[in-house]
């Protein structure tokens, strides 16, 4: 397998592991288990979302319609592209293409920043429209989609916007953490720390990034596309 040659001169092997393979497996398993806990962390919010969407479907539809779905779709595309660049970065690390690795890490971070920029613009719009929950919240006379003559209950719409800001906010927080991880990966890659034999940090950092992408893949239809049709 070739592993036994490498392990003697392997500087990254911690003392309590028998071989690099064991260390690599432990690290990726640890990240997967952590992502499992993340599912449950977001799960609490999904639970609240499910209940109130079930109770206040019309109000949620009206509130969802006030958000720019094109921006949401654009952000989905941005994240999908960033996932591609992450997987290319992992491939570059596996196949010892240092320049490609550095480039892909940089592009991933640029996509991440673009996502946050679009997100920030969306928040700015909501702020301007007084759709941020709190004392200045206002959602008067907004028709319920599919029910002519009915208007959304502002309180119920406020619950939608609370969940919208909480879910996208905590997701954005995860993106910022991801950017931090990738900055660190970039520094390590710049220093030439990754080899085909040792690139576990790129792999598990990538796992984290993909997971944050997956969360967004669900947030997009749940928050932006509730009841869009005219």
């Amino acid at each position: 397998m070739g592993l036994h040659h490498e392990e003697e001169q392997h500087p990254e092997l911690l003392h309590h592991f028998a071989e690099p393979e064991q260390q690599r497996n432990a690290a990726s398993l640890g990240m997967w288990v952590f992502l499992g806990t993340e599912i449950m962390f977001f799960g609490g919010m999904f639970c609240a979302y499910l209940l109130y969407r079930h109770w206040y479907f019309g109000d949620f539809g009206a509130a969802s319609k006030s958000i720019d779905a094109t921006l949401g779709a654009a952000n989905t595309a941005v994240l999908i592209c960033s996932s591609l660049t992450v997987v290319l970065a992992v491939w570059a690390a596996q196949t010892a293409r240092r320049a490609l690795l550095l480039a892909m890490l940089c592009v991933t971070m640029l996509f991440g920043l673009a996502f946050l920029g679009i997100k920030g613009y969306e928040y700015y719009q909501k702020f301007e429209e007084h759709h941020v929950p709190g004392p200045s919240f206002s959602f008067e006379n907004v028709p319920v989609p599919g029910h002519p003559g009915e208007y959304a209950n502002p309180r119920h719409a406020q619950i939608y916007f609370s969940l919208y800001f909480l879910m996208t906010g905590i997701h954005a927080l995860h993106m910022i953490v991801g950017l931090g991880i990738f900055s660190w990966l970039l520094l390590m890659a710049w220093g030439g720390r990754f080899t085909p034999a040792y690139h576990t940090p790129v792999e598990i950092g990538g796992l984290y990034w993909h997971f944050v992408d997956i969360i967004w893949i669900f947030l997009f239809p749940l928050l932006y596309l509730i009841d869009r049709h005219p």
């Binding site: 779905a69 779709a73 989905t76 595309a77 997009f220 239809p221 932006y224 596309l225 049709h229 005219p230």
Partner: peptide, 12 residues
């Protein structure tokens, strides 16, 4: 992503 975006505007 494109499909899900477009389908959302159909009445289903």
């Amino acid at each position: 992503t494109y499909v899900t975006y477009r389908v959302a505007f159909l009445e289903l």
